[in-house]
Design a protein around this nucleic acid. Sequence first.
DNA 1: TCAAGATGATAATACGAATTATCATCTTGA
DNA 2: TCAAGATGATAATTCGTATTATCATCTTGA
Lengths: 339, 339
Amino acid sequence: MSGTRRRVTQRDIARISGVSQATVSLVLNNRLDAGVRIAPETRERVLDAIRSTGYVADPVARRLADRYNRIVGVFTYEPVFPSGTRDFYHPFLVGIEESAERLGCDLLLLTSAPVQDGRRRIFAEGSRIRLADGCVLLGRDLDRGDLTRLLAEGIPFVSVGRRDDAGGPVPYVGADYPAATAALVRRAAALGHTGVAYIGSGAGPESFADRLRGFNAAAAGLDARHLPEAVPAALDAAVAEGVTALFLEEPADAPAVTAWARAKGLDIPSDLSLVALGDPTRPVSFDLDVTGFTIPRREMGRQALDVFGALLEDAETDTQRLLPCELHDGTTLTGRNRP
Amino acid sequence: MSGTRRRVTQRDIARISGVSQATVSLVLNNRLDAGVRIAPETRERVLDAIRSTGYVADPVARRLADRYNRIVGVFTYEPVFPSGTRDFYHPFLVGIEESAERLGCDLLLLTSAPVQDGRRRIFAEGSRIRLADGCVLLGRDLDRGDLTRLLAEGIPFVSVGRRDDAGGPVPYVGADYPAATAALVRRAAALGHTGVAYIGSGAGPESFADRLRGFNAAAAGLDARHLPEAVPAALDAAVAEGVTALFLEEPADAPAVTAWARAKGLDIPSDLSLVALGDPTRPVSFDLDVTGFTIPRREMGRQALDVFGALLEDAETDTQRLLPCELHDGTTLTGRNRP
DNA sequence: TCAAGATGATAATACGAATTATCATCTTGA
DNA sequence: TCAAGATGATAATTCGTATTATCATCTTGA
């Protein structure tokens, strides 16, 4: 390469067009306030120099001066391009990218955030979050401390997925798990199921708690129970007590549950119905078309950036949104005819 | 938001411990050079203040004082998170991310680049390519004009995939298609195939031309032909003239070719062998385990950033690298026993 | 006793852009 | 003709950190 290359700076533009650095800055920011005046022909001269050099402000310097860069940080609590969960996270990113393109923003993948205790922390030493105008957070369970600090420092951000308050309301675009889960429970009830079970912790990440809440609300009149883990012993007991429909918090558990059922000589769905509360977070190869609902991942990503844009511009928006999930008619939930 | 709590700065630390800001910086960076001396007890005092306040250097300011902003632009000629080609581009990004994390760089996805004539252009009006220290280019066919201009302007960049000169040598990390293709042709020859055909344009992107070149080189003594398109008529003719092994430039065409063969009553591989020259760029669901080679995508991404780092630091490196492809033993290339 | 060297810390400045206060110069109107 | 206002541009400063040149002060040794 031709020796040492230096960025083109405002000083360079100033020298080329015969004005001061301050003038260049004023032209660039299109300042038209009272008190700031630039002669049209001077403005043109500066703009010409900018065009001919392709000058772009150094985002680092801009941030130091507290300006925006049209850069959105994307922070995930796992590697951004994970191998295992990529199929799950990919649609979110597709949506995010779509909106970014529309908004004319670039995405900064916060890859240099070091991994501590097996997961990333936003505010680890040297985190470059401040390079971006703010960030979008992706991941199943975010660190509560991170959220609190983001709020406290006034850094604009949006979570993909509903979040509980963290020292203040957290902006998010989530999926309406309670509604979707409740709808499926009601469908099961309408099909004659009276013994239903929720399989999964129902605690930890908000998305788990939300599902369980929806389940409990809709199962009020039924014989409902909650199995924190999909272990054979618990499943055995539930079935023995008359449970005929299982609701899976983690759809990736479906193969394991199916295997158990097969071993027990139970047919799905004629003996036992199976409902998946969402999409599998791990890739599973599976032959059953499980009834359940689909998380509007792409749309969540898209709207997350919309909310983010509104936050930056202090525009009025609904900063806490729950999007409806689409119910999926599979083959694993059928009518209950036995007495 | 709870008022604006100002960051703790070196100035604050300096005030607390009764020294100058410069001293704080020296202590922080643990400078022990000749000419820089800090009394142990002063150092302790400063460190105490740092510990008690939880001070962390502002990465933005730190970078401003640096020559580089440690941002690597990632430019793709299609959306970075495409739906259709995701499985193909994904591994490159994984590798790029890995190296970025190691280098302490952040990745800026240039999603704001406007699409013109159906593809993105680097140097459009308002291009933000100069936000970063340089960039990594991804895509099957890059715009020659863009490459020329990048070279002319001395912007550090590395192409993922080999590129022809564009007014100068283009730094790249590519896959050695000629070698891999030639190896497979030789293997076919060793298995008794004498009539072989290359299916695909063999022109346009460098990766296509490279494959055809490798094919022709290794097929010198055979009855070789080149079918620019995988259309039935051409395939019929080739087979009629004694071709027994097909080499697919675009592995995603495999299902179409297989369907044609099936319709003609040709069995793969007993009547006709099939070789895939790389990985499918589009997702295909397919039941055959096609013999061919695999592009070292992750490693290409990784090394691309290594080269990029070397370019930035004017370090000596091989800036044009071809990585070997791994041959994949499938079930579609077998011995030819007929006379 | 006094110059030479060692020691410890600081002032000044750079990095690149944004902003405010200020300064010339030119128009007016009376 | 001259003060008041309009016009156009700039010098100086800010953001937080890193670095270099410089400056006191204190030890030595002869």
